Amino acid sequence: MFPSVRGNPYLHPQIEKSLMIEQRTIRGGASDQEGNHPMKSLILLLLLAFSGAIILGAISVFIGLLATGVPVGDLEGALSEGAADVDFLKIVQAGSSIGMFVLPALLLGITEKRRHTYLDFKTQVNPSLWFMVVAIMFFSAPVFEQAIKLNEQMRLPEALSGLENWMKAKESEQERLTNLLLSDTTYPGLLTSLIVVAVIAAIGEEFLFRGCVQGILTRWFKNPHTAIWLTAIIFSAIHLQFYGFLPRMLLGALFGYLLFWGKNIWLPVLAHFINNATATISAFYLKRQGKSLDELDFSQQIPNYLYFTSFVLAAVLLYQYYKIATKQNTRSYGKTLD
């Protein structure tokens, strides 16, 4: 069902051009002047992300201190349940995300625009694909819920108990941060939560991982499926939430294929936004009812047979997305997916 990229005409013209450049360079034994090695692109991206996280993180802390009135010497106390402290945390989270994900992806695209296209905003998209992305995310939700439950049952051998305790500590730390970010039960608080957790996260992480990392790895391995799954693994691992590794990896792979077939970065951004926004809104209404996020579990409300039904429907929709997207590619570029 999924063809190999080697000799595959279903590539963005700029990517196909870059692969031809690299192949000619290897055959001729010349230095890589026109098409730089993917490792160089990856190192540059990491440097940009590291620098952006530090610079924008520091700036956002300064802005947060001014905007919320949190004492300079009480940054540790900012991680409490006070309303002003939550606002401070949201400002820092937003600034750090922009610095670590959004700006590095945009800067890499500008730096290497003569050689490679990472963020394709211009490829035409069949309007039905937008609706299909929404439907795919809706029907696949129970499947990912099952993946979460399966992942939570993970147990390491006794010899690795130290590693398991560290993983649990990181999980608790991330859970506490999430609780703080979503603790504001006012509607303005919901809006800012959606901006930080859904909008900025969806744009930034898709720009960086699907747009840049997946693009770089595709050039490196000459196989989009290897690139998609490696990117999904990196995407999941970097969140340091090990008991949610499996569902996040599967989500990352789904986003990767939405981009690979649809060719427009806004398609996986929409899917990512739907995923994060749904969780944010659900958590908001749980909080307003005085419930904890631990009660955000729909698995008990869904009959077992509906899991299989949702899987089938999601698979059918994804196949239709694949067919429509490749047909659009044929019409736009005169090429087919063989």
Rank of each mutant, 00 (worst) to 15 (best):
L119D: 08
L119H: 03
R155C: 09
L318W: 01
R27M: 02
F284T: 07
V143C: 05
C212R: 04
V125W: 00
S161N: 13
I228S: 00
V125T: 11
G99D: 14
M20A: 11
H225M: 01
A53C: 09
Y187T: 13
K149N: 12
T25I: 12
R6E: 07
I302D: 03
Y321G: 04
I110P: 00
F255M: 11
W261Q: 01
Q174I: 10
I148C: 02
V133K: 01
L259C: 03
A83N: 09
Q93R: 15
L150E: 11
T111C: 12
L106H: 08
F221E: 00
L217F: 14
M167N: 05
I234Y: 02
K40E: 06
V72K: 04
L246V: 12
T336D: 10
G211L: 08
K90F: 06
A202T: 14
A30C: 04
H272N: 07
M39I: 11
L258A: 02
V72H: 01
I233P: 05
P303Y: 00
G64C: 06
I281P: 06
I233N: 02
W130M: 02
D87M: 14
R114S: 13
T186E: 02
D120C: 08
A53I: 09
H272M: 09
G99I: 09
L44Y: 11
E158W: 15
Q289D: 10
V196H: 02
S60W: 10
G262V: 10
G77W: 07
N264S: 04
L89P: 02
E16W: 01
I59E: 03
P38G: 03
L45N: 07
E164P: 12
L156M: 15
L108G: 05
L254K: 01
W266A: 04
A159D: 10
T111Q: 10
V102H: 11
W266L: 14
K263S: 04
T231C: 07
N304M: 10
M100R: 05
L163A: 15
E175K: 13
L106P: 10
L317F: 08
L65V: 15
H12R: 03
K122V: 02
P38H: 05
V5C: 01
Q289M: 15
K113I: 13
L56A: 12
M100G: 09
D85M: 02
F308C: 02
Q300R: 03
L108P: 07
I55R: 15
Q241H: 13
Y307E: 04
G290R: 00
Q93I: 05
Y285I: 15
I234P: 04
E81R: 13
L156D: 14
T25Y: 01
T336N: 10
F235Y: 12
Q300D: 11
E76C: 08
L108S: 11
E152L: 12
L254D: 00
R248S: 09
F121C: 07
I98P: 10
K149T: 11
D294C: 04
L79P: 00
M20G: 04
L106Q: 11
A67M: 14
L293C: 07
A271E: 01
L156T: 12
S282N: 14
S161M: 13
A169P: 07
F284W: 10
I203H: 05
E16A: 13
R248T: 07
G262E: 06
S4V: 05
G29C: 03
D294I: 05
